[in-house]
């Protein structure tokens, strides 16, 4: 076997880091969409990813629907869960404080996890990769076709969201809710609908993340919490409420983990990423791209 050069090793770490980071970024974007409208950190975000993967397994593997039908069907199902989450867990809370909202989303995530365990059992599931598993060789590094799909979907999500928030009336209305909900309702925006919509969007993005992650790393009912923590880390690193921040945060976290594991000590790779996160926060308390005002709004 030929020896792998240092340059291709580094390139491989970068590719791996960016792929893992893209998943974190998608979770982070989901966090941000809800946060921007409601200032809620939805800790059930990881559960959307899990449901995306598991429901796709059901439609595509168990029922045997072709991928082009199973994909949207899965996204719609998870979106419905998102709406239910808003209706059943968030909206009924009469005196929302940051703590009660956090506990509500934790409670919801536990319920979803429990139901997923009853339905799918405790074993992991696999999905076939979208375009086979024959790796592509590039500059001595290997790239799974699925990695390309991950990057591609991240790009598509970013483009669509940008168009949505900047070009459509509903998107602009959502941004308005984010800036000032009272003023938004004064000009006739239905804030409740906007909140529902934010849950829909972020559930849909979570579902997409789950669908494309499962062929790489399998999926089981118990994955949500870890994904939520990583996504939350990415959001905070990038700056709460900032979409470019979420993407940057996710990619940076993934890359640090990958380089940390490859070059320094794999047991401590998560710690490296978190130390970097703390260092950023201590220097710039609102994250890499966050605005100072946002950090001042809420306390516990």
């Amino acid at each position: 076997m030929e020896k792998i050069t240092l340059a291709s090793q580094l390139f491989q770490y970068l590719i791996t880091g960016l792929t893992v980071g893209s998943i974190y970024a998608m979770v982070a974007i989901g966090f941000n969409i809800i946060y921007n409208v409601t200032e809620i950190i939805n800790l059930a975000q990881g559960e959307f990813v899990v449901l995306g993967g598991l429901i796709m397994v059901f439609f595509h593997v168990a029922v045997g629907l072709p991928i082009l039908i199973a994909f949207p069907a899965t996204v719609i199902m998870v979106t419905l869960v998102g709406i239910l989450l808003d209706r059943l867990a968030i909206r009924p809370i009469r005196q929302p404080s940051v703590l009660t909202l956090i506990i509500a989303t934790i409670g919801a995530s536990i319920v979803i996890r429990g139901i997923a365990m009853i339905i799918w059992g405790k074993d992991p599931f696999d999905l076939p990769a979208f375009s086979g598993r024959t790796p592509i060789n590039l500059l001595g590094a290997v790239i799974q076709p699925q990695y390309v799909w991950v990057g591609g979907f991240l790009l598509v999500i970013v483009v669509l969201l940008t168009l949505f928030f900047e070009k459509t009336i509903i998107g602009k209305a959502m941004s308005a809710c984010a800036d000032n909900p009272d003023a938004a309702s004064l000009v006739g925006i239905n804030v409740k609908q906007m909140i529902s919509l934010s849950f829909c969007l972020s559930a849909a993005i979570g579902a997409v993340a789950g669908i494309i992650l499962t062929p790489i790393a399998l999926m089981d009912y118990n994955r949500g919490a870890m994904l939520a923590v990583k996504g939350f880390g990415a959001v905070v690193l990038g700056g709460l409420g900032s979409f470019p921040g979420a993407i940057l945060g996710g990619l940076v976290l993934g890359t640090i983990e990958s380089f940390g594991a490859g070059l320094i000590h794999s047991g401590y790779k998560d710690a490296f990423a978190l130390i970097a996160l703390l260092a950023v926060l201590f220097i710039k308390p609102s994250g890499l791209l966050g605005s100072v005002e946002v950090t001042k709004i809420k306390k516990f």
């Binding site: 792998i4 090793q9 491989q12 770490y13 590719i15 791996t16 880091g17 792929t19 893992v20 998943i23 590094a141 992650l213 790489i216 790393a217 994955r223 870890m226 983990e257 990958s258 380089f259 594991a261 490859g262 070059l263 794999s266 047991g267 790779k269 998560d270």
Partner: peptide
């Protein structure tokens, strides 16, 4: 090398 029990990718460790 090592990895976390919930990790989704071990390519970096294997590359090393």
């Amino acid at each position: 090398e090592s990895y976390g029990p919930q990790d989704t990718d071990m390519t970096a460790q294997l590359t090393k």
